[in-house]
Design a protein around this nucleic acid. Sequence first.
DNA 1: CACCTCACTTGCTCCAGGAAAGTATGACCG
DNA 2: CGGTCATACTTTCCTGGAGCAAGTGAGGTG
Lengths: 165, 165
Amino acid sequence: MPLRSDWSEELCPVRRGLDVLGDPWIMLIMRDVLHGMTRFEQIRDSSGISDAVLARRLRLLVDEGLLRKVDYRGDRRTHAEYVATEAGADLLPIMHAVSMWAEKHTALPEGGGHMAIVHESCGSETTSADTCSACGEPLRPDAVSWDKPWKHTRERLVGATDLPA
Amino acid sequence: MPLRSDWSEELCPVRRGLDVLGDPWIMLIMRDVLHGMTRFEQIRDSSGISDAVLARRLRLLVDEGLLRKVDYRGDRRTHAEYVATEAGADLLPIMHAVSMWAEKHTALPEGGGHMAIVHESCGSETTSADTCSACGEPLRPDAVSWDKPWKHTRERLVGATDLPA
DNA sequence: CACCTCACTTGCTCCAGGAAAGTATGACCG
DNA sequence: CGGTCATACTTTCCTGGAGCAAGTGAGGTG
């Protein structure tokens, strides 16, 4: 990745992973995409990223194979959309792990609350990042909801769409 | 954290987590510390970080409560040492998740190989980031080894040392 | 007391980030 | 068929952190 020294050839997989993920915006963009926010302006408004940086990151994510850009026929015109590939959807366990770490080790701000990660297949909250702690099944994105009490929403995620619609 | 816009007050826990973790060096430093590399020069030489950036990151990590700085009486003089707190040791599932993602979705470089994460309590490799997929126990850092075939080593991690030695 | 090691700090240049404004494309509107 | 609007960027400008290299200061050593 051109934003920093290139770690894609490192032998340690943690370091190779950080070559892509060691940037605060990457994960935030992918979080939005997995919540069904696929359009440029949706992601920008949701994450607060600047136009220039968002454009660069989206290009990077497409190059790295985490996102796929598709032209989507909306109500009255075609939009550009970014959807997660399997590599992108597979960031979900990392997001869960980050979320669980933050809930345990950062101060809950005013008005916040515990975000439960719910495995819709079995209906239970999971305490593991990658495997449902209740039923033992692997957590697939399209079977997971994030329950956000501060927004009074329970949002179902969307999975990979490797095949064009 | 002063390196970027402050996200510590965000309601979304993913974003609060990225306030600390959205930097490539943080995770790399913590990886080294969990491998028992606790001294300034060890971390610098292992990770390739520059002196100035390492010093700033160590200060940040101490401020954020992921590391604790201790003066350690060595062979002939006292050294500064950085050891993981519980908050620091709890990054382990995130590292595992990053490692597993990278092994699945990045190209293995020349001379590389699969890094197995071994739960020493039961002797099995785990495929889950936070819970041993073989025996179901939570993965504690001091019961985990990383098997690195390219170095022909199997390195036992060290856990949190919240109480001064 | 000159010298060494360790853990930083300082200075310098360069490039990425953030904010705001500009632009290209296509759609719809009269 | 020209004007306006929405969308998805690109460009410009400024500031600040990254990376490199050299310096500094506190202990300990011969």
